[in-house]
């Protein structure tokens, strides 16, 4: 942290004018909160700027905290159960049992189970499975599961791409089968993509850990990593997850850091199910650094247009981008 006493009027001016970078803003706030004297000095500047004092409104803090409550009460918190060593041992025993069952199950898939299925065609489909896990299926994807999620483990068969947020249940493993690949989890959030063009299966883990296995090999994928299975070579490999843009179709969260507009539109195209057409290919090189969370496509395009001085038009499912080039 920077020395909070080292601050000058130039920096306070930048802060009030809304020009401070995050680092500068931290510096200014540390300084303001370091002493009453500093706070008074800031408030005097604030008065000059706004012609009134922006009192530290306790009400704002309380109001925002109150608005966050429904979110905080949601899932994760409620799901926390304390594990005693005894219970851990018990669930381990169960799991070993389950392991054997899985093994045989794999050799002889039971045909006695009734399966349920769901398909996503033109739109992304979000749904909750009988065990409380949530799935967001990307377009042109298909999943199926045993009716009522019965059986010793939660078996899912996936075609295409889906983002899973799995409810925690150590005694009933959650296993996804994608052709010849199995992905096993106990409680986590991750994305599985069966890319038929690249002939690969990708598993991106955003939270927790999963085990990805072929009939011969297996790898553990931790949060922030991506496991890749290449059919051509039969190899399993690990890569660092560069961004979570790939799962934006499910999360609607995109972030770019000095990313070319070409790549940005590729991600937007996947997340929003639209095509992009550049009237001037030079625009593809324009770099963009920004972040979007749960924004509509038109909001994002407005911001991009303003940032890069270009224009756009959305016709049906196609976005036309034009302009002279970025500067």
């Amino acid at each position: 942290m920077t020395n909070p006493t080292l601050i000058d009027d130039t920096l306070l001016g930048k802060f009030l004018a809304g020009e401070a970078t995050p680092e500068e803003a931290m510096q200014v706030n540390d300084w303001i909160e370091a002493s009453e004297e500093n706070k008074t000095r800031y408030q005097q500047f604030e008065k000059i700027w706004f012609a009134e004092t922006q009192e530290e409104r306790r009400a704002d803090k309380e109001e925002v905290w109150r608005k966050l409550q429904p979110l905080l009460k949601n899932k994760t918190v409620a799901k926390q159960i304390f594990f005693t060593p005894f219970r851990l041992a018990a669930s381990l025993a169960l799991l070993v049992g389950a392991g054997i069952v899985i093994y045989f199950w794999n050799l002889n898939p039971p045909d006695t189970l009734t399966w349920e299925a769901r398909e996503a065609h033109q739109d992304v489909v979000a749904m909750t499975l009988p065990d409380g896990s949530s799935v967001t299926m990307n377009r042109k994807s298909h999943i199926q599961w045993p009716k009522g999620m019965e059986g010793p483990q939660r078996n899912i068969v996936l075609k295409g791409e889906a983002y899973f947020d799995v409810s925690h249940n150590p005694s009933k493993p959650f296993v996804i089968t994608v052709d010849d690949i199995r992905i096993k989890v106990l409680g986590t959030a991750f994305n599985v993509q069966n890319d038929s063009i690249k002939n690969e299966v990708e598993t991106e883990v955003t939270r927790g850990k999963v085990l990805m296995s072929t009939s011969r090999k297996e790898i553990i994928i931790e949060a922030g990593m991506k496991g890749i299975y290449r059919r051509a070579t039969g190899e399993l490999s690990l890569e660092k997850l560069v961004s979570e843009n790939n799962i934006a179709y499910a999360t609607r969260a995109l972030s770019f850091s000095n990313t070319s507009l070409d790549e940005v539109t590729r991600q937007l195209s996947k997340a929003y199910g639209v095509q992009f057409v550049f009237t001037n290919t030079k625009l593809k090189e324009c770099p963009l650094t920004t972040e979007y969370h749960n924004q509509s496509l038109s909001f994002i395009m407005d911001v991009i247009a303003e940032s890069l001085h270009l224009t756009y038009e959305i016709k049906d499912n196609t976005v036309f981008i034009s302009g002279d080039g970025c500067f």
């Binding site: 926390q80 159960i81 594990f83 851990l88 669930s91 381990l92 799991l95 070993v96 389950a98 392991g99 054997i100 093994y103 925690h168 150590p170 493993p173 096993k184 106990l186 409680g187 986590t188 939270r207 927790g208 850990k209 085990l211 297996e218 553990i220």
Partner: peptide, 17 residues
């Protein structure tokens, strides 16, 4: 097989913590 299942369960604990 047992080994991985063991790891799996520790994972559960870790993520709770």
């Amino acid at each position: 097989m047992t080994f991985h299942l063991f790891i799996n369960d520790i994972r559960g604990l870790e993520s709770k913590k």
